[in-house]
Each structure stands twice: as C-alpha cells, then as structure tokens.
Amino acid sequence: MTEQGQEARQRMVAGAADMIRRRGLNATSVRELTKHSAAPLGSTYHYFPGGKQELAAEAVRYAGSLVSKVLRRELAAGPVEGLRAFLALWRQTVLGTDFQAGCPVLAVAIEEPPAGDRSAVAAAAEVFADWEALMGAALGERGVAAPDAARLATLVVAAVEGSVALCRAKRDIAPLDAVATQLEAVLSAAVAR
C-alpha cells in the first residue's frame, strides 16, 4: 500500500472511531463514515473489503490502542496514577464534546452485530481485555495477588465505562467523579495491604 493509501486508510479508521463514539455503530452508515473522514465511498470497500464491520473493528482497535498507550505510560508510576489518567481521558472526552461522545469500544460492544459477523464486537472484547491486563499487571507489580488484581482491573474498566455512559445520559460529569473517588480509594487500599 502506498503512503498516500495508508494515510487515507488511517484517516478513515480515525473518522470511524469518532463517529462511533458519538452515534454508535448501528446509527452510522458507511456513507456517513466515509464522508466524515473525507474519503471516497469506493475507497471504503477497497481498504475494508469486509465492509462496515471490518472498518468498525479497526476503529475500535485504533481507539483502544490510544488509551492503552496512555495507560502503559501512566501505570508505570502505579495503579492509582494509571486510574487517574484513564479517568482524565474520559473526562476530557465527555466534557470536550459537551456529552456528545463516549467510548467507541463500549458503543460497539453493546450493539447487536449483524448475523454471523462479530468482528467489531470481538475487537471490543480484545480492547477491554488489554485494558484489564494492563491495570491487573500494575496492581500485581504493587503486590496485589493475581486473582484480586484481575477482579480489581475488571472493576475499574467496567465502572469507568459505565460511568461514561451515565454521564452522557444525564449530561452531567457527577457519575464519573463519584466513580473516580470510589475507585481511587479501593485501589489505594489494595496496594497498601
């Protein structure tokens, strides 16, 4: 693939992630995705022969990798610092879009895929598993037993993702703030044991 082709493909993936975080996958057509990313409609099927689900899976992986990159960097300082960074990302997303955008990974995960094509949902599961593994490893490095670290990591991801959905529905950041306070206390206590 040429450099120009790679740039066009990447622009489509980033545009799809943005549209999905705002409207969900089922409410977004391939035509809208290509228009939003300023790409010709035909190029979608050229770069993504599997169509909308393939593009969505790539968009989910792209969004997930951006978050994972921040988590890897911040978790090096400790689980609480990683949690704060994770929360800050979603705070910025929710407030920066006036409650119009959330997590594209969650958006894809909760929508029913077309019969026989679970590629986008599978990508969402991979991303969630990666975030949990990163948090769990950071907790383990601070002495939290593996089973407890895994459970706490799942709690963090589920609580933060759920609070983002609540913030959007209520058009209020309070759910994220409440979850932040509780999760920080839980992780601090786990690491202090």
Rank of each mutant, 00 (worst) to 15 (best):
M1V: 04
T2A: 11
E3W: 02
Q4N: 12
Q4G: 09
Q6R: 06
E7Y: 13
R9A: 13
V13I: 15
A14L: 03
R21E: 15
R23E: 13
G24L: 10
L25W: 13
T28V: 08
S29W: 15
V30Q: 12
V30C: 09
L33T: 13
K35I: 08
H36Y: 11
A39S: 10
G42A: 10
Y45R: 07
F48A: 12
G50T: 13
G50H: 08
G51H: 12
G51K: 08
K52D: 14
E54F: 13
A56K: 09
A57I: 03
R61I: 04
A63R: 10
G64T: 08
S68E: 08
K69V: 02
R73N: 06
E74R: 09
E74D: 06
E74Y: 04
L75R: 04
L75G: 08
A77Q: 12
G78I: 04
E81D: 11
G82K: 00
F86W: 03
L87A: 08
L89P: 02
W90I: 10
W90V: 10
W90A: 05
W90G: 10
V94P: 00
L95S: 12
T97V: 09
T97P: 09
D98N: 14
D98V: 02
Q100M: 08
G102D: 10
G102A: 15
L106Q: 10
L106T: 06
A107W: 14
A109T: 00
I110A: 08
E111A: 10
E111H: 14
R118P: 01
R118Y: 12
A122D: 11
A124N: 06
A125T: 09
F128I: 03
A129C: 06
D130R: 10
D130L: 06
E132A: 05
L134C: 07
L134N: 02
L134P: 08
M135H: 05
A137F: 10
A137C: 11
L139I: 06
G140D: 08
R142N: 01
G143A: 02
V144L: 05
A145F: 05
A145I: 06
A145C: 05
A146I: 07
P147R: 13
A150C: 07
A150N: 11
R151N: 07
L152K: 03
L152C: 01
L155Q: 11
V160P: 07
E161Y: 05
E161D: 12
G162C: 14
V164H: 10
V164C: 14
A165Y: 05
C167K: 11
R171P: 00
D172N: 12
D172K: 02
D172G: 00
A174R: 01
A174Q: 00
P175V: 05
D177W: 01
T181W: 03
T181R: 02
T181H: 00
T181V: 03
E184K: 01
V186N: 01
A189S: 03
A189L: 00
A190R: 03
A192P: 03
A192K: 07
R193H: 03
